[in-house]
Nucleic acid binder design. Sequence first.
RNA 1: GGUGAGGUGGCUGAGUGGUCGAAAGCAGCGCUUUGCUAAAGCGCCGUAGUCCAAAAGGCUACCGAGGGUUCGAAUCCCUCCCUCACCGCCA
Length: 423
Amino acid sequence: MLDIRLIREQPDLVKSRLATRSPAHVETIDAILAIDIDRRAAETRLQTLQSDRNRLSKEIGKLRAQKLDSADLEAQVKKIAEEMDQASTEAESLSAKQREILLNLPNMPQADIPMGRDAADNPVVRTHGEKPVIANPKDHVVLAESLGLIDPDRATKISGSGFAVYIGQGARLERALLNFLIDTHTREHGYTEVSTPFVVRRECMVGTGQLPKFEEDMYGVDGGGLFLVPTAEVPVTNLHREEIVSAANFPIQYAAYTPCFRREAGSAGRETRGLIRMHQFDKVELVKICSPEQSNAELESLTANAERILQKLGLHYRVIVLCTGDMGFGSAKTYDIEVWAPGQNSYLEVSSCSNFEDYQARRMNLRFKGEDGKNRYCHTLNGSGTALARLYVALLENYQQPDGTVGIPEALQPYFGADKISK
RNA sequence: GGUGAGGUGGCUGAGUGGUCGAAAGCAGCGCUUUGCUAAAGCGCCGUAGUCCAAAAGGCUACCGAGGGUUCGAAUCCCUCCCUCACCGCCA
């Protein structure tokens, strides 16, 4: 959520930065400024009435204490109360309207984010490794089915399309990856492991920005009061919602595994083959909470931490920076890490690392005490470290052997318990 | 799920209709004094919104959340959430 004060005091700055996402935001800013003026006028009116009421009510108290007649004053206050009803209805409605617009307004991209319309405009920042030479690469679905790692038909039978059943070595590989990821981030990168509930309350979803705008993409349970987590970002970042955390602990760093549940409404037919786009997939998420001064440097280290996974697994990848038109709703800057998948003949996004600056912190009222003793909003960041299903795809497709087996990278062997997967 | 008790400022904890944003203590900050690693005295010390060009200052709201009663609510009533204790059930 953007700061209404910033919008009020520097509307042109906010407009120009939001316009890099979409020109339509300019009108929204004008609308919100108009509402802001009305809202403050209504609140001032209400406060004046409240002040009058309080003053008169105190006088009534004094008169009654002296056993004097207070009927006149009481009539006056009663009249004020009627006006107050109207004023407070107006103030509340304007305030709710303003909040609604603010909650649906995306974050401002940082000034140096490349301009662009969509994914085609995302510049490559760096690449690592080389594409392996594989003649007629098979895709992961063929590989996994022939090795008996997954059972798509039964997955569909029990849950419908977009769900996976892993079996035998296939399930073990998933679990091995999970432990490898968590161990790497906690032992080598200094993150604290955290295990959270997989369902969260509505206000958490608002806090990290999934709601109110993207409700149709989420799985609601319990009549809409609770939601299945679409990413561990939601429960983990919200651990400190409504808190004033100590800056002495900055950067706070958490690594968490959760399954991720996404309806993927509107993306039917896109990248739907195999394990690439699922309604449920496993992911290890990295979350950082820090000061505004630290957040850009922390984004670099968080991205490097996620990259380290692919390096250890010997996978070729590239890092891109998302252009203004392709950035996520709440982000001020995002790097995507894309791993090469020979069977797809394309790169697959396995991590998205974002600096949200104070956008989420303001929504969830997450603050720290500044050196001057004033409360300031924290900056929050998160990134996948990494998504499991797509990493799984990349492993199978990159390490497929001519004899039909799949090799296991050395770093993963202690976790998997073997150096290859064969029938 | 049942019964009972309770949710007040960073913490502990008073306060059952008006002078209460809220006693007191602890913690924190500042000053003074004595001095050996501490003590005493004094003062300050919640959050947010809003008014003013701004500062100073004013006003408003907030005692778990939301509604109601009343001229006036931390205090009375209703609903919900949460915590604790015991009972029941249970991986």
